[in-house]
Write a protein that binds this DNA or RNA. Structure first.
Length: 557
RNA sequence: GCGCCUGUAGCUCAGUUGGAUAGAGCAACGGACUUCUAAUCCGUAGGUCGCAGGUUCGAAUCCUGCCAGGCGUACCA
């Protein structure tokens, strides 16, 4: 609807230009919005005001010229008015709204999809937690945001690839191996001194137990280096498998699990460092190798290879992002926890230094999850083994409820996650409010079937039957769904879908509740058929929206 | 100190990329189930949009400066 009106406006501007009624200038971008207040029309544009300066004419006069040039041969518009300082308000002819209803039914699962991303490949990388311990709630938030954003981008036509970057190399993996080996020796009867920087969680002991079961005391005969290596490899694999399971239980899957180690195996890290050294972007200082990130907007230069010859995490990240660009994505989206924000400048500096367009790589920082238990903060540390895992939350609160909770917030704002409230919230969670709409409509449709309404179909009588203001209101709300999906994609803000669904659900519940006025299945066959058509359209949208979030749409509750 | 994010109703948060009279949920108070499911609905109350300037037809939104909170500021990841 908005699109069609936009086209009319564009044509009107064009014809006003060619008729010489407006001085020609570059076509301004037309912004149509749904006014907050119904009296301001169905759509409103500020175009006359934004053009006023360039035209050197009063906005009201420009508005009048534009309106005069609108060629509305389809009678889409029932009324236009110039209001306030120069808004043009459009009122859509009521009979045109029914076309939306038909569109929803015709498109079904595809209602809300668009083609703005067609032909473009985008990669979304998210979670990417080190395989040194299970995922915690913070990772869950990133997972929900990343997975839903990927689904939204897909719905707008992008070819989307979801990727998990596995940090299976470097010091933290070695520390993991050492921690497991120590617990292993402990089980075999040795007294050990556990180092301060070791991983202390119980899962380390479980892993050590498994090593004992698989290998017996064989590791005792190996050198420390070999034993640590074995333990590290085994532990990382096991933990990663667990991460994968937990994510699947949370409804998140990836197309690609990209190994950091593979960048070393293929010498990609080595060669990019060599390349940058040749170009004097990496230089030696105090025995270490430094990247001139400062020349590309970072606040200081960063170490790539330490004095002891070991590469930093940043080194493989340079090679990793180079690899991403080599895979020829049109867009690359990295989703990180906000605690990594210090990394943004250096990564985008490295992208620029390699000669790529840094704007092609967008980094979303998801604010941290503050974990509370009955109002009191719970400290989380993987190393100390004190944390609440994603699995625990999913098991306790449920996948639907926890996903919805994470998505009911802009990723920019920190989230307090209270475990004491989580259980309670699983009953009061807004997700049930939305799902309940789906269950209620499903129930209506079941009941209708029992009474002989076999099919849900359109009939040209319907406009006369569905004409209450609240019914038109519902259709107008349905018309907005595709705009919401498009906006979420453009702004990369998945929470918009969740908020929209809540709004649609509220409108439906209110409508549904007044049974005396709005009963769907009644004695009047034609009215019933018409209302069935209306509410089943709502069900389609609820289902589509929930499916973007990978939240289930139950038939019964 | 410097950098990033945030400050909107008692609490948790939206706010259509600068629009017209700032909105939900929870909590509080008062109502609605012989009806297609009350996990629901209706109503009341609740606001100097952190503070102060600036930009303009117009600011919660943009700019500057303060104040407060979170995170970061490693040859850790």
């Amino acid at each position: 609807m908005k699109e069609r009106l936009g086209i009319l406006l564009e044509q009107a501007l064009g014809s006003a230009f060619s008729a010489g009624h407006l001085r020609s200038e570059t076509l301004p971008s037309i912004v149509l919005e749904t006014p907050r207040i119904a009296a301001h029309g169905d759509y409103s544009t500020n175009i006359a005001m934004t053009m006023a300066a360039g035209q050197k004419t009063a906005p009201q006069a420009i508005a009048k010229i534009i309106i005069d040039h609108i060629d509305d041969s389809e009678h889409l518009i029932s009324k236009t008015e110039i209001a306030g300082p120069g808004f043009i308000n459009f009122f859509i002819a009521q009979n045109k709204w029914y076309e939306i209803l038909k569109t929803v039914h015709d498109l079904g699962n595809a209602y809300g999809t668009s083609r703005i991303g067609v032909g473009k490949r985008v990669q979304v990388e998210f979670v990417s937690a080190n395989p040194t311990g299970p995922l915690h709630v913070g990772h869950g938030r990133c997972a929900a945001v990343g997975d839903t954003l990927a689904a939204i981008l897909k719905a707008t036509g992008y070819e989307v690839e979801k990727e998990y970057y596995v940090n299976d190399s470097g010091r933290q993996i070695k520390t993991l191996g050492q921690s497991v080996l120590l617990r292993y020796r402990e089980i075999l009867g040795e007294t050990i001194a556990f180092p301060a920087d070791g991983y202390r969680g119980d899962y380390i002991k479980d892993l050590a137990q498994e090593v004992v079961a698989n290998e017996g005391d064989r590791l005792q005969e190996l050198s420390d280096g070999e034993a640590v290596g074995l333990c590290a490899k085994f532990a990382a694999q096991e933990i990663l498998a667990g991460i994968r399971r937990d994510l699947e239980a949370f409804g998140v899957t990836f197309d690609e699990w990209f190994s950091e180690e593979s960048l070393y195996d293929s010498a990609a890290v080595e060669s990019v460092i060599q390349d940058l050294k040749n170009r004097d972007i990496i230089y030696e200082h105090d025995g270490a190798l430094w990247f001139r990130t400062q020349d590309f907007g970072d606040e200081k230069d960063r170490v790539v290879v330490r004095t002891n010859g070991v590469t930093t995490y940043f080194a493989s990240d340079i090679a990793y992002h180079k690899n991403k660009f080599e895979r020829r994505f049109d867009r690359i989206i990295d989703i990180w926890g906000a605690d990594h924000h210090g990394y943004v400048a250096r990564v985008s500096a490295s992208i620029e230094a390699l000669g790529y367009d840094k704007d092609q790589c967008q980094i979303i920082l998801v604010q941290l999850v503050n974990l509370l238990r009955d109002g009191k903060p719970v400290t989380m540390s993987t190393r100390e083994g004190e944390f609440v895992t994603l699995k625990e939350v999913v098991d306790e609160v449920g996948r639907d409820a926890s996903r919805f909770l994470f998505l009911l917030r802009h990723y920019d704002s920190p989230l307090d996650f209270d475990l004491g409230l989580a259980k309670k919230e699983s009953n009061e969670n807004p997700v049930y409010y939305v799902q309940y709409v789906h269950a209620r409509i499903s129930n209506i449709i079941r009941k209708a079937e029992e009474q002989g309404y076999k099919d849900i179909y359109w009939h040209e009588d319907f406009p006369g039957l569905i004409d209450l203001p609240e019914e038109i209101q519902l259709i107008k709300l349905m018309a907005r769904y595709p705009e919401v999906v498009t906006q979420s994609a453009l702004l990369m803000e998945p929470h918009r879908v969740a908020f929209y669904l809540r709004e649609l659900a509220a409108a439906f519940h209110a409508y549904y509740h007044d049974r005396s006025k709005h009963k769907v299945v009644s004695d009047e066959a034609r009215l019933s058929a018409a209302r069935l058509y209306l509410v089943s359209a709502i069900r389609i949208i609820i289902r589509n929206g929930l499916s973007l979030m990978a939240v289930s749409a139950p038939e019964n509750m």
